[in-house]
Nucleic acid binder design. Structure first.
Lengths: 215, 215
DNA sequence: GTCTATAAAGCGATAGAC
DNA sequence: GTCTATCGCTTTATAGAC
């Protein structure tokens, strides 16, 4: 195991995912992390400081697994990144998996985002992580449209990225609160990607033709 | 002022919008409502019962201002509902206004949705309200596409409605947490509506042609 | 750095008078 | 129906030993 401080942050992410930010009790966190309560106060500046650090920790971790290799498959070779659209879909659908690490990160992230509405101290980190995420998705959109959609301007890509990331957060919230099945959320996300790409001029041309025929 | 019970619910919506569900203290609510703590326990079944009642109250209020007339302008006559697309935009952009009642409702709704992730008791009401909202938006989409997009199937409309409502929630969360300016949120929402409508075959035909020319 | 023990405060909930 | 007063548990936070 890594140093105690990191162990506490990992435990905090787990507890937040399970109980929410308001449900996080320093004592429960201590048990989860296998340390004493006092040690948490030694390493962090009270409960508030702990939450801030945890938000940063979760943001970093999310960037790591979003930007990283696409799992076991990537072991098979040092091939250059896959075609833009696949990479885009992979990246955005990554959040919709019922595996502990992902669910934990999504839940914790959603909690901290919701908490930021009432706690201005958390907004800085939230804005920072959000911005880099939007930029990343905008880049993926550019790659995905580089062949067919040449000449798409930056702001248009950024707007599409903002819509896709905001949609992802909305769908994620519904999934986590149990009112939207996982597969349904994935399907809606995939469709949204297709719609945005088509709008940017990278969609399957037939779709656009079909629509025209309907008229 | 109405009866005390209603006054307490109104105060609860205000406090939740200000402090969040997590931050709601019975004592603070008592001060806000101008009553004693004990009276709250007399009218509601503890804190949990109070939250449940408040969720219902907020849901009803949201339906009222979503389905209701479009403000002062509607005083001018008993004209039938406006063209589908305008009505759709009006309905979805209604949530993005920096007036107390709307902001309060949005914030409280977002809070209760976030709380439902960790409190299964809140999910029933959430699912009920969410479903009727999706249906309403799907109906508006049908109206907006009835001329040019004849023959669009129900499930396709529902999926588009689900994407738009989920996007709205995602954008709303960002607006309320102060990382997305109100006007930017409105613009993104409007664009999303345009993109979805075009996909459904109701968009300005020229857009699709333009894309085809780019190839 | 890490623990045990304890102080201090917060908060939900109730009793009982009016 | 509404209030004042208070109880009692929970939770944050710190003191001080090792």
């Amino acid at each position: 195991m890594r140093d105690r401080r990191t162990a506490i942050l990992e435990a905090a992410a787990r507890v937040i995912a399970r109980r929410g930010v308001r449900g996080l009790r320093v004592e429960e966190l201590a048990v989860e992390a296998g340390v004493s309560k006092a040690l948490i106060y030694y390493h962090f500046d009270g409960r508030a400081g702990l939450l801030g650090s945890t938000l940063g920790f979760i943001g970093d971790r999310a960037e790591r697994y979003t930007a990283g290799p696409s799992g076991p498959a990537s072991l098979s070779g040092a091939s250059p990144p896959p075609a833009g659209r696949e990479e885009l879909e992979r990246s955005l659908l990554l959040e919709f998996q019922d595996v502990p690490e992902v669910r934990e990160n999504s839940a914790a992230w959603g909690e901290l985002r919701a908490s930021a509405v009432f706690d201005p101290e958390l907004r800085g980190e939230l804005a920072r992580s959000g911005l880099s995420w939007v930029r990343e998705v905008a880049d993926l959109l550019r790659s995905a449209t580089s062949r067919t959609g040449a000449g798409v301007s930056g702001p248009v890509l950024v707007a599409a990225a903002e819509r896709l990331t905001a949609l992802l957060e909305g769908l994620s919230a519904r999934w986590l609160s149990g009112i939207l099945p996982l597969e349904h959320a994935r399907a809606l996300m995939r469709e949204a990607i297709a719609v945005e790409l088509q709008q940017l001029g990278a969609g399957v041309r037939a779709d656009c033709d079909r629509v025209a025929v309907d008229v």
